[in-house]
Design a protein around this nucleic acid. Structure first.
Lengths: 187, 187
DNA sequence: CACATCATTTGATATATGTCAAATAAATCG
DNA sequence: CGATTTATTTGACATATATCAAATGATGTG
């Protein structure tokens, strides 16, 4: 079972919920470009399901923005650590384009879970999907060169390059903008 | 709520279980130095709770061992991706010293969960703890220099350095043995 | 369209880290 | 204890990547 099938499963579950009386727990949110979905220092209370648009996850270190992830349609956007631990979020999530997003409060999610045990499985899938993502990124950062990481990204997420400025991609890959540019030139 | 409190919570829950009839699901495993707890290519079916000893998680890339984690007493050892997805494990877990370990089969864990809903919370804590660990490592790999990563490790896990050969620590930090040695010399 | 702004590329150089080889130091074992 | 193996350090050099500066290209706006 790979990540894509997870996402499909979660999205189809979401659509099912929207046809039941659980839909009261789900809200549609619209964001303009550059609006924030989650801000640094706030607790992230929601799971967000991206319908349209692209978002960027980043945080500030020594005055520099460090990009940790991008969220595309059908992705789940959230600061998981903040959500799971009810801690203030270290990072923020910002819309790179206008977005349409469903959101569900984590506490409501748990209410639904109590009524509908199959939601427990969905929650585990949500978290598992995130773990897979983290492990993948960890692996690639610990043991791959900048060029390998770039090519891996191009394999797995070819749509990144079409819609995201190179500055953000460089930061996401953990390399400088110039190095990224040179890797691309050689390719 | 930090990682240490998680571990304490999980361990105390484990001890509680051992005093109920759930204890039939928990087995004590003894390992000799260099024995494997999980082997590459096998599915990881158990959660392991380390009582005594130290284990190393690693996998092979291009003929080289890549160390991804160490497990000390009170840690939960498992290949989570393998466990959660019931996939063959990419890495293995090997005892660096003689070990005593409790294990519980993931499927039994789910049985217990059905009887005892508070176990659900424990499962989420287990996974959350792992997520926190991954994020921490990701952060340090993506944006810190080798020296910063070393010092961070010394802050967070000072006992690593006392009991683990530098070769493994270097691999864990994603740097060469020689670089690690030089960082330590400057310190 | 022309200007201003932002994004990307290119060049020159500095720095961090890796690699290979050798020297020490420490641990293990008969 | 002495011999052998294993772990760690040190040196010389190669390579990858960062940094700074400038040039070029693309995009948006009045």
């Amino acid at each position: 079972m790979d990540l894509q099938r997870y996402k499909d499963k979660i999205m189809s579950m979401l659509k099912m919920l929207l046809e039941t009386d659980m839909k009261e727990y789900i809200q549609l949110v619209s964001l303009k470009k550059n609006d924030f979905l989650v801000k640094e220092g706030e607790v992230c209370h929601y799971y967000y399901f991206v319908l349209e648009g692209i978002l960027r996850n980043y945080y500030i270190k020594n005055g520099t923005e460090i990009t940790t992830n991008f969220d595309f349609p059908n992705d789940i956007a959230a600061n998981f650590t903040s959500l799971m631990l009810q801690q203030k979020s270290i990072g923020c999530i910002q819309a790179m384009t206008d977005c349409k997003i469903y959101r569900m409060k984590a506490s409501d999610f748990d209410k639904i879970k109590a009524k509908n045990p199959s939601m427990q499985q969905i929650k585990e899938i949500l978290i598992s999907g995130y773990v897979i993502l983290l492990e993948e990124r960890l692996y690639s950062l610990q043991f791959c060169t900048a060029a390998e990481r770039y090519h891996f990204m191009m394999e797995e997420y070819p749509y990144f390059i079409q819609q995201i400025p190179l500055t953000y991609i460089a930061s996401y890959l953990g390399i400088s903008l110039e190095t990224l540019s040179r890797i691309r030139a050689k390719y």
